[in-house]
């Protein structure tokens, strides 16, 4: 039953992905991406990854949608119609996908308890058996994140810091100066042009 629910949610994701490919309106595509993340979060709960589901719902579906909307408010909403030949891309993607599917044929089946990932004595088994006495918190994900793989989390913080600096140096200071100089190029004028187009 659990597997069925997970598979149905996965199938929803495929339909949403097709919608994103087809849609020309960028705003619609961004909202579909948010829906995609939210459904993925629901599926993560079914697959017992509750911490990942929290993060995906808050960060993937919340913050990144806000970032996309912010970007769209500074740029344009429509993807221009293109009759360009994407047959080569389609063939490339189908071949790559076919090879990957061929590669899954000897992967451990969904939910198997005897796969290598589940039985390695120094990883999952040790975390499950020892983390309560070695680290403390009942949530094993917290123990692994903050203690066993603490350097990963430190590196993640550094990446986010670097990204923050990069975004600020690309946009932050320059934008305020430009808006002072030429208010007619304020971000609001592109969406209104878009509205004119729709009329």
């Amino acid at each position: 039953m659990e597997t069925l629910v997970a598979n149905v949610l996965l199938t929803f994701l495929v339909f949403i992905a097709i919608g994103i490919i087809v849609l020309r309106d960028l705003l619609g595509a961004v909202i579909l991406l948010g829906v995609y993340s939210l459904i993925a979060a629901g599926a993560f709960v079914v697959m017992d990854a509750v911490d990942v589901a929290f993060t995906e719902a808050a960060v993937g579906s919340g913050i990144s949608t806000i970032l996309f909307l912010g970007c769209l408010s500074f740029t344009q909403h429509k993807q221009k119609p293109r009759g360009h030949d994407s047959l080569a891309a389609l063939i490339f993607v189908v071949i790559t996908g076919g090879l990957l599917i061929y590669g899954t044929l000897d992967m451990p089946h969904y939910g198997r308890a005897d796969s290598a990932a589940q039985t390695h004595p120094e990883l999952a088994v040790r975390f499950l058996e020892q983390s309560a006495s070695e680290v403390g918190p009942p949530n094993i994900v917290t123990s692994v994140l903050a203690s066993y793989r603490g350097y990963d989390t430190l590196g993640e913080t550094l990446v986010v810091f670097a990204a923050g600096i990069a975004v600020l140096s690309l946009l932050g200071l320059k934008r305020t100066r430009r808006e002072d100089e030429a208010p007619e190029h304020a971000p609001g004028d592109t969406p209104s042009a878009d509205v004119d187009e729709r009329r």
Binding site: M47, D48, A49, D51, V52, T55, E56, V59, G60, I63, S64, L67, F68, A117, Q118, L123, A124, F127, L128, I140, V141, V144, L145, R149, D152, T153, G155, E156, V159, V160, A162, A163, G164, A166, V167, L170
Partner: peptide, 22 residues
């Protein structure tokens, strides 16, 4: 269930959003 992939993906989600922002 195995906690290790959950930890790896928690990190990956946050890094992914940082990439998207840049």
């Amino acid at each position: 269930s195995n906690p290790l992939p959950h930890v790896l993906i928690l990190t990956a989600i946050v890094v992914g959003v940082a990439t998207t922002a840049v």
